[in-house]
Design a protein around this nucleic acid. Sequence first.
DNA 1: CCTACCGATCGGTAGG
DNA 2: CCTACCGATCGGTAGG
Lengths: 199, 199
Amino acid sequence: MEVSQNPLNRKQQIERTATSLFRTKGYAATSMRDLAHELGIEAASLYSHIKSKEEILQRVCFRVAQEFFEALDAAEANSGCATSRLKKAIAAHVRVLTQNTEASAVFLYEWRHLSEPMHSTYRNLRDRYEARFRDMIREGTASDEFHVPDEKFAVLTILSALNWIHTWYRPDGKMKPAEIAENISNMLLHGLSYPTQPH
Amino acid sequence: MEVSQNPLNRKQQIERTATSLFRTKGYAATSMRDLAHELGIEAASLYSHIKSKEEILQRVCFRVAQEFFEALDAAEANSGCATSRLKKAIAAHVRVLTQNTEASAVFLYEWRHLSEPMHSTYRNLRDRYEARFRDMIREGTASDEFHVPDEKFAVLTILSALNWIHTWYRPDGKMKPAEIAENISNMLLHGLSYPTQPH
DNA sequence: CCTACCGATCGGTAGG
DNA sequence: CCTACCGATCGGTAGG
């Protein structure tokens, strides 16, 4: 992951502003005139930098997808037991979510406005991402670390618990990303009934 | 909850069809002409039965909200310990979700297109609903049944795990609503690491 | 429930 | 990056 401190070029500014609008108003309800107005230019001028409204959505969705995969790769690199791998994967997922709250909200809820073939490509990526979590659960079940009625069910429950974070997370809030990951991991691995360890 | 077997009147047909379109295409991307076409009439004819596009969204959102509250009231009626109350509340929530997959998806993701004052009314309802779950968690913490770092955090994690169900639940699938509730309750209360009870 | 139609707005292009 | 503009489509109304 590369964090650029350079001033954003015009295309990046457009994408960033569009991400914010897509997140709050939704893709379909955001007009190119809304976007242009936010940037202080005319709608027609946007097309010197981008090909179409949908191109922006595509770029946002696939950039976030790539970040999720890179984070998961790093998390699975030096793998221990299934429990520790799952914990690392959860922490990586939370990190991407919290570092890209707006973009990840667009990634999660606006992708359905992608047209073919991008729509199918996106779905395949999501499937492959979830499959890697299913593998972790399956291995944890084999090693008797986890006890779940259905791997797919467990993965969807885990990811849905994580994917809600963008609705309430605030960078200046009291819970930091690592703490959120720790708390969610504890809750998902041990449950509400389990005493939390003091630290 | 009243399940009517009567044939739907025209207004109900419009709402049901709109719900399905809002769910798959999103509210903003669904046109009144789309809706009319699906019903085999002209767009102008819709307005003999409804006042506006937004009226449909309002009716769907607030009908679902009412169902969630009624189900929660029933679940909390003969209350036992916090654990059993939470389990019943989860089962009630899952029942409403699975019996109204399309409407609850609209309720969860399209409400932001409500204009004021309905937008605020909706948010207040959601807040009150979540507050009742927070109360359950708080009481369970007081009675040493639950151990959570933060009640609000716990509630949002629980509800987000539940609210994803509509994306994969199929009435003819292998997991029945009661079973889904049971599995999610176990996972949330005891965690992945806890042996599942055979039944 | 229809035909006929309204003003507003949409994504996008031509040409500079 | 702008002015000027395109055809298409939007939610909704009038009048029957």
